[in-house]
Design a protein around this nucleic acid. Structure first.
Length: 118
DNA sequence: CATATGACGATAT
DNA sequence: AATATCGCCATAT
């Protein structure tokens, strides 16, 4: 399989999401260098979440909601996140101010995460 | 090159 | 608020 830079970077980023945090499709696309390619992130997950060792459950949409539909992964994703300490409000939303991973922890250099700003 | 897919995101109604 | 529609773009065929 040829090395597609975008997909490869996206997979790296998803693997780097710390336990107990989430990232958005668009944010991952941005970090991977294509700010408008959120849909590709979704496609990559669809294609690879079961083959690569991806913490796919840490990826949610921009509203902090799980994009998967009930009986199509929603319950499993929510359970996995709650297992990591991520909480949902009554509307099924995650508080992104608390749980959104921005590629590094502000004021905590050297926490092991990469600088995905490029 | 033409189409189809995709777990998105922003905007209009 | 809930849909509907459009824009965007990497991959697959």
């Amino acid at each position: 399989m040829a090395r597609q830079e975008f997909s490869n970077t996206v997979i790296e980023i998803i693997r780097a999401i710390p336990r107990g945090f989430v990232a958005t499709y668009g944010g991952i696309a941005f970090m991977a260098g294509s700010p408008q390619a959120a849909r590709q992130v979704a496609r990559i997950l669809h294609a690879c979440s079961g083959k690569e060792q991806l913490p796919w459950h840490r990826v949610v949409n921009r509203e902090g909601r799980i994009s998967l539909k009930p009986m199509q992964g929603y319950e499993e994703q929510r359970m996995l996140l709650e297992d990591e300490g991520v909480t949902f409000d009554a509307k099924g939303r995650i508080d992104l101010d608390l749980y959104l991973w921005r590629g590094r922890v502000a004021g905590e250099p050297g926490d092991g995460t990469r600088d995905f700003s490029g």
